[in-house]
Nucleic acid binder design. Structure first.
Lengths: 201, 201
DNA sequence: ACCTGAACACCGTTCAAGT
DNA sequence: ACCTGAACACCGTTCAAGT
């Protein structure tokens, strides 16, 4: 067994069962080696998580290089979101700490290039990139994939329970809020508004 | 000691030392009671985290009700960001699961009302709210407060290490990327572009 | 009723021993 | 050299006992 194979096994484990299900002991058992043998491949758990990010980064599916800057940026944002949703724990592994792994830089490089191609000067492209980054990662982390009918009903029910005189706006928009919980359409809407605001036609 | 006091102690603990530092054993010792006494106040650790969210929600500082819809929405986004940065673990406690606590709804109510006041119809306000939410939470989680000079130098150094022929765009925008790492100015820029895109003048 | 120590089933990691 | 079990210092939580 190689380090890459172990990191791959760890990634499929967290994709299926969540980050909290990953323990050195359980991973070792999954792979069929002694727990302490893992420490021959990774200095510690943090090092294993870094290796998992590298493996996941290879799974990024670059958007097709066709069309104008606007539609290419939309495709790039969509591809980044799809990538994060395929590995839901990616956004949890590193909170605020910037990811300085080369594999992750490859994803950023594409986005930055598209913004420069769209005509933004370098400092402006850097600022714009960060805004897109925060929105895409934020959507993946806090809004997520298509909400289930059950989730929609739950939020509807919760809003309807609120006293109407204290929460008039939420009551008014309750139906819309349930629909806007997450999903591809909601994400695309925000992405489009954001690119509008950045002046990318 | 009351449950509120315990939740407050837990919140100051995680604000200072991070979420991973919070254990039932350590919290009990901090408060000066036996570990198992905590379970008289909270069913389990998850229940304690919910109580911490409620305590933190009271700490939201509503923006002043002055000016037009645009400047009020800017002030609202700023206030929400400041609130999250005051309690950096808030964004970690619940990943994707929607927060259905009444105290958190109070923060949402203000934002939704501002969007309705700005002239958006209810379904559009709901979609727009979600976009603002994703951006503000995403900024707090992934970009964070003012980057230190050291963090800026670290990202600069990392980018300069990349092979220039593989990462031309990142190299070109390296200085800007370091400046756009986070901080209030970067956040305001994105907030303004987002409101532009939503057609809120 | 209220509080809590002991115990159980887990962690990550060090250290020494096994091959 | 490579692998790993035992041990240590932790977890959250159940259960039974203490007042």
């Amino acid at each position: 067994v190689s380090g890459d194979e172990i990191a791959h096994a760890a990634l499929t484990l967290v994709d299926r069962d969540g980050l909290e299900a990953l323990s050195m002991r359980r991973l070792a058992e999954d792979v069929g080696i002694g727990t302490m043998t893992l420490y021959g491949y990774f200095r510690d758990k943090r090092d294993l998580l870094d290796a998992m990010i590298d493996i996941a980064a290879e799974d990024f599916d670059p958007p097709p290089a066709r069309g104008g800057p606007r539609s290419r940026l939309e495709a790039y944002m969509r591809a980044t979101r799809d990538w994060l949703l395929r590995h839901p724990t990616l956004v949890q592994i590193r909170g605020s700490e910037p990811i300085v792994r080369p594999a992750a830089f490859r994803v950023s490089e594409i986005g930055m290039q598209l913004l420069l191609d769209a005509g933004l000067d370098p400092p402006e492209a850097a600022r714009a990139f960060r805004v897109l980054f925060d929105y895409v990662f934020g959507s993946a982390a806090f809004s997520g994939p298509e909400p289930t009918a059950q989730q929609r009903r739950a939020i509807q029910a919760a809003v309807v329970t609120l006293p109407p005189d204290e929460f008039p706006a939420l009551r008014t928009a309750a139906g819309g809020a349930a629909a806007a919980l997450g999903g591809a359409e909601q994400f695309e809407y925000g992405a489009a508004r954001l690119l509008d605001g950045l002046g990318i036609a």
